[in-house]
Design a protein around this nucleic acid. Structure first.
Length: 263
DNA sequence: ATAATATGGTGAT
DNA sequence: TCACCCTATTATC
């Protein structure tokens, strides 16, 4: 489920496995064969995520991975399973393997290319250096719907469809309201909330946005179907007011909201 | 067995 | 706004 929290989680996990280690790199599927050969046998210096992008510093290169909608990672202790099907990338250390399938991007970048990519990204709520004022400045300059702006990676990096829908609900914001109409005080609360929710996502590996009081089972593990307020709940009663959750397709993405709470 | 679906992004129109 | 790329999982026949 690749939103920003997923990539930061992988950065932590893969950094533990790879950083400081010599890696065997291959592309059984062949689509990354050339790049894999270039870094095969080199030492991974460090691993980091920025928004939904994952980077490994390897000698003079950056291995850049973007999962897109379909990309999947798996890892485990050696021995690695026999490669099957479309396996884009396999990395192995002396004791672990990591497999990557179906990514939108798996490529080697040089410093300038990485810098150009990062320059297209807005602040990432999961990074300490993130500047929320820069986000507010972008919002304040735009008439586009706030729902569209929050998913624009050049405005905020790392938010996906789930966090977008849920954060708008939690702050009772009409998804169609123009970005520039968002109150600065409301935005400050929204940002702080995003940081909290996304950090929890990195820790748990899942997106949970409901407060315990709004769940049928307020204590213990969050059950399936209780993790969200509006995402994929079309027609179901709003957890707060009972109004059926609405849905629309905006820019080819599903949007979910409560028409009463978010009026 | 086949179809539908999905949390993303790009580039053309 | 659309067409397109990528794959795994779930639903349906």
């Amino acid at each position: 489920m690749p939103e920003g929290h997923t990539l930061h989680r992988f950065a932590q996990r893969h950094g533990r496995i790879l950083d400081g280690h010599r890696v065997g790199v291959s592309s059984p599927q062949g689509r990354f064969a050339e790049g894999a050969a270039r870094i095969d046998g080199a030492v991974v210096e460090r691993t980091e995520a920025y928004g939904k992008h994952l980077f490994h510093r390897i000698e003079d290169h950056w291995l850049h991975i973007h999962l897109g909608l379909f990309g999947k990672f798996r890892d485990g202790p050696l021995p690695a399973p026999e490669p099957r099907g479309a396996l884009r990338l396999r990395m192995t250390t002396e004791d672990h393997w990591i497999d990557l399938r179906g990514p939108t991007a798996c490529e080697l970048l040089v410093d300038d290319e990485r810098a150009a990519l990062l320059a297209r990204l807005g602040p990432d709520p999961l990074r300490r250096d993130a500047d929320p004022d820069a986000v507010l400045a972008r919002l304040a300059r735009s008439r586009a719907p706030i729902a569209t702006l929050l998913m624009d990676q050049s405005v905020v990096a790392g938010i996906g469809n789930v966090y977008r829908a849920e954060i708008l609900f939690r702050h009772r914001i009409d998804p169609y309201s123009p970005g520039r109409d968002l109150d600065a005080g409301v935005f400050a609360l929204l940002w702080a909330d995003l940081v909290t929710l996304m950090r929890a996502g990195v820790r748990s590996g899942r997106i949970v946005t409901t407060d315990p009081a709004d769940r049928e089972h307020p204590s213990g593990r969050v059950r399936r179907g209780e993790a969200h307020y509006v995402y994929r709940r079309t027609g179901l009663p709003c957890r707060r007011c009972g109004t059926p959750i609405a849905t629309a397709v905006i820019a080819a993405r599903n949007l979910f909201w409560c028409p009463a709470c978010q009026a």
